[in-house]
Amino acid sequence: MSTTDLTTERAARHRTDPVLEIDQFSVDYAGATITHAVKNVSLSLGRNEILGLAGESGCGKSTLAYGITRLLKPPALITNGHAVFHSREGNTIDLGQLSGEELRQFRWDKISMVFQGAMNSLNPVISIGAQLEDIFTTHRPEMSRADRRTRSGELLERVGVEASRLKSFAHELSGGMRQRVMIAMAMALDPQVMIMDEPTTALDVVVQREILDEITRLREELGFAVIFITHDLPLLLEISDRIAVMRAGEIVELGEAASLYANPQHDYTKRLLSSFPSLTGERGDFIRTGVIDTAAAAALS
């Protein structure tokens, strides 16, 4: 089967075999005034699919991800909607109905997350190995210490990091290695869904390419689905089966990646695409597209 056929198959699978369904999901931030951060978002994620979630900073992408996994803290409040998980075993779980202990067991086991900023996500005073082993201590208490250590080393090697790095601390690793460690943590318990929140932010283009290739390879090897969050729409066009474009808390366009690139329907999607100049062809007019202001244009001239 060709790559195009595989992409079409995965893009259609969300209709017949969804692993995660989000229905009319809304999140508000309370305060002197109420901010509607996420407004009645409905999405489905197919099994083994990569769904890209694109949009500018502050549009609600991360808030949606944290809301789905119930990681939001006050003053954030889920005001409407449901997030429903469909397991490989045929069980249906409404994430909003899980108790505290049920939710603790569910996270990382069924749905895991790669957070923004690997350096801030890793504990700076605990070794990488101890942090990996802690996942198994919490979720697989029957594992022996030796088994936990062995499994942790296998996870690092699977993402391209030597097992000897188990003894290292976060500050001793490069940015790309830290991000690989975060991916290893997220896949430790063989989850069925991984949410990746800006996993390539602040990485140079070479390391970014390596991380993207790693994600694609692991998805094919292990069969998990991915929600990939970023403001970088061209990156999503390369890695995603489908893309949802988000603006001001709402999904303004959703479609297969190839179709969205060839024939974008919403003006905001068109402007996102036009904000990245081509390496070849004629020079565009950034002022006309509204991407940068007149002062910035003058500075570039």
Rank of each mutant, 00 (worst) to 15 (best):
T92V: 13
I93H: 03
I93E: 01
D94L: 09
D94R: 09
L95S: 06
L95N: 06
L95H: 05
L95M: 13
Q97F: 03
Q97I: 00
S99W: 03
G100D: 14
E101P: 01
E101M: 09
E101K: 12
E102S: 10
E102Q: 15
L103S: 12
R104W: 01
F106P: 12
R107I: 04
R107F: 09
W108Y: 04
W108P: 12
D109G: 05
D109I: 00
K110N: 14
I111G: 09
S112N: 04
S112V: 05
M113W: 10
V114I: 12
V114F: 01
F115D: 11
Q116M: 08
Q116A: 02
G117T: 09
G117V: 05
A118Q: 08
M119R: 14
M119K: 10
N120R: 14
N120G: 11
L122K: 07
L122E: 09
L122P: 06
N123P: 05
N123F: 03
P124T: 07
P124K: 11
P124N: 12
V125M: 13
V125K: 13
I126G: 00
I126L: 12
I126N: 08
I128T: 13
G129V: 04
G129C: 08
A130W: 10
A130S: 12
A130M: 10
L132C: 07
L132H: 08
L132W: 07
D134Q: 15
D134F: 02
I135N: 05
F136S: 04
F136D: 08
F136W: 07
T137E: 15
T137K: 15
T137A: 15
T137L: 15
T137F: 12
H139V: 00
R140V: 03
P141T: 01
P141Q: 09
E142T: 14
M143F: 10
M143L: 15
S144G: 15
S144I: 02
R145Y: 06
R145E: 11
R145F: 07
R145K: 15
A146K: 11
D147Q: 13
D147H: 02
D147V: 06
R148A: 09
R148K: 08
R149K: 14
R149A: 11
R149N: 13
R149T: 03
S152I: 01
S152C: 10
G153E: 07
G153C: 04
G153A: 06
G153M: 06
E154Q: 15
L155S: 08
L155N: 06
L155G: 10
L156Q: 06
L156T: 02
L156A: 07
L156M: 08
L156D: 08
E157Q: 11
R158I: 00
R158G: 02
R158C: 03
V159C: 09
V159P: 07
G160Q: 10
G160I: 01
G160E: 04
V161M: 05
A163S: 15
S164V: 12
S164P: 06
R165Q: 15
R165E: 14
